[in-house]
């Protein structure tokens, strides 16, 4: 059962395609000869070059949604397109806020199951196999959909690496949105964009994360300082999020963000399995913990057995001194 066509859902804003869609295009391209991008918003023409360059031959755009939450109109437009011209073999989505909704809407509308939280995909004899991390990532479960196409897969962000393919700009096909009635009535009346000094957590190449071992919310300032100093993003465990030290957007793990930075510095973090699933994909891991038996050391490339409240201030000081000397030692 060869895979012929995959739709990849992409998001963009102001003519800039989000990295998650480019990552999925790279994965889809390896599996299917025809890859098409699903898009909404007024900037299809502006992203045609980058989406084409990453392997999409066509953009199926729903256009400007005028404030409507996207899931309902996009699902309705895709369902109508499928009705008219047949389904793709699979639809790849990213676990973003809007796309999780879209996956649910499409699934119910088309009466097709959806596999979520996928962290990999391969081609099996009977179709695509989605990989899922179970038990804190110690186990990989591979699952397959037996329903007719389209097969819906929602991937965790950072599952694949984006990679340009050098294709020409994608053709743009505008999809009509059928009347969605009451279901389509939720409307965005105001968008609030939180101020952020550094890079976004899921895009940062350095992540400095703090856990309960910091002992006190005020010490989270050490994490923020180190993140700033290294040009990275600060993060936390669920324990410190639940304790109200930092907002939910800081949370790394099973029920938070998945990160794949060049280096992840875990400070005062035990390394619970639910935390590990969100950061084990980091290229390098440094851990500071006073307990030699803390599970975090099992995944760390460099482990420091020590008091985080002492090591971090010294590290910050040494970095300052290093700056004053003008770089390398």
């Amino acid at each position: 059962m060869a895979v012929g066509r995959i739709w990849v859902v992409t998001e963009s804003s102001g003519g800039v395609a989000s990295p998650a869609g480019l990552e999925l295009l790279a994965a889809a391209r390896r599996l299917a000869p025809v890859v098409e991008a699903v898009h909404w918003g007024g900037d299809a023409a502006e992203v045609a070059a980058v989406l084409g360059g990453h392997g999409a031959t066509r953009i199926l755009t729903v256009g400007d949604l005028e404030g409507a939450l996207p899931a309902v109109p996009v699902a309705a437009a895709l369902a109508a397109r499928i009705e008219a011209s047949g389904p793709p073999d699979a639809v790849f989505l990213t676990a973003s806020y809007d796309q999780r909704d879209l996956a649910g809407r499409l699934s119910a509308r088309l009466d097709r199951p959806v596999l979520t939280n996928a962290v990999g995909v391969t081609e099996g004899a009977d179709g695509l196999l989605a990989e899922h991390a179970a038990f804190g990532g110690s186990t990989v479960v591979r699952a397959r959909i037996t329903a007719p196409p389209p097969h819906l897969f929602v991937f965790r962000p950072r599952t694949f690496a984006a990679e340009a393919a050098g294709g020409p700009p994608a053709d743009v096909e505008v999809l009509a949105v059928p009347d969605t009635g009451a279901a389509g009535a939720a409307t965005i009346v105001h968008r609030h964009v939180a101020e952020r000094a550094g890079p976004a957590l899921d895009e940062a190449s350095v992540v400095v994360a703090g856990g309960r071992g910091l002992g006190d919310p005020s010490r989270f300032g050490l994490i923020e300082q180190l993140a700033r100093r290294l040009g990275g993003a600060p993060a936390g465990t669920r324990a410190v999020v639940d304790a109200g030290w930092v907002p939910y957007s800081y949370q790394v793990g099973q029920t938070g963000t998945t990160v794949k930075p060049t280096v992840y510095l875990a400070c005062g973090i035990s390394g619970a399995t639910q935390h590990l699933v969100g950061m084990k994909g980091a290229r390098h891991i440094v851990a500071i913990n006073k307990d030699r038996d803390a599970p975090i050391f099992g995944v760390a490339d460099l482990g420091v057995v020590g008091d985080v409240t002492k090591v971090l201030p010294r590290l910050l000081e040494a970095l300052d001194a290093r700056d004053d000397r003008g770089g390398t030692q």
Binding site: L129, A134, V141, R142, A143, A147
Partner: peptide, 12 residues
């Protein structure tokens, strides 16, 4: 009704 099957389970 689930129309999905687990194909295999392996240590990661």
């Amino acid at each position: 009704g689930a129309r999905q099957v687990i194909v295999d389970v392996a240590p990661s």
